[in-house]
């Protein structure tokens, strides 16, 4: 076996290894959205049971925090937020943007829970926040999953081709 052939085979092996690493990374990334949904579900459980597990805010705390926003104002903000977030995700789907699932949405949604709780209307508005969160995170997860799966298929085809070439050589 000549030096040239050895280096070519090494390069093929390296390429194969790189493809396998890429497939593994993509598989992890494809299910990243599930983690975001699971985290949001975990945050939502105490919010759903808020009237049972959290004691009402004391007048001192309420005085310190000031006048809470009205529930109508928070609901209007939630609708605007959901609309913008869905539009952004749809834009990313159109552009096939590989941006990862943004966990910041969980933070924003938790703020909505907190504001509703502070205004004393969380039980009435819990389902609206939950559905908004699940929609945004599911769309993001689906986008990342489908994008990763398409890339995995590409890599698997390249890997199969590479393995055929390795067998021939």
């Amino acid at each position: 076996m000549t030096n040239q052939e050895t280096s070519r085979e090494l390069s093929l092996a390296e390429q194969r290894e790189a493809l396998l690493v890429s497939i593994r990374r993509l598989r992890t990334r494809a299910y990243q959205g599930m983690w975001a949904i699971a985290t949001f579900a975990c945050v939502s459980v105490p919010a759903m049971l808020s009237d049972r597990i959290f004691s009402p805010l004391t007048p001192e705390v309420k005085k310190m925090l000031g006048t809470p926003p009205t529930s109508n104002m928070i609901s209007a903000l939630l609708v605007v937020y959901a609309f913008s977030a869905i539009l952004l995700v749809l834009g990313r789907i159109t552009n096939s943007s590989p941006k990862a699932v943004s966990f910041s949405h969980i933070g924003y949604l938790t703020c909505f829970y907190a504001f509703y709780y502070y205004s004393g209307v969380l039980p009435e508005n819990f389902w609206a926040v939950l559905v908004a969160g699940m929609t945004i995170l599911s769309l993001e997860s689906y986008h990342i999953w489908s994008l990763s799966m398409a890339k995995i298929r590409e890599d698997e085809e390249a890997l199969a081709l590479l393995e055929r070439r390795m067998k021939i050589s």
Partner: peptide, 11 residues
């Protein structure tokens, strides 16, 4: 569409 309509209706 489903998610947004549901959020709007619930609110």
């Amino acid at each position: 569409v489903t998610g947004f309509v549901a959020v709007c209706c619930l609110s």
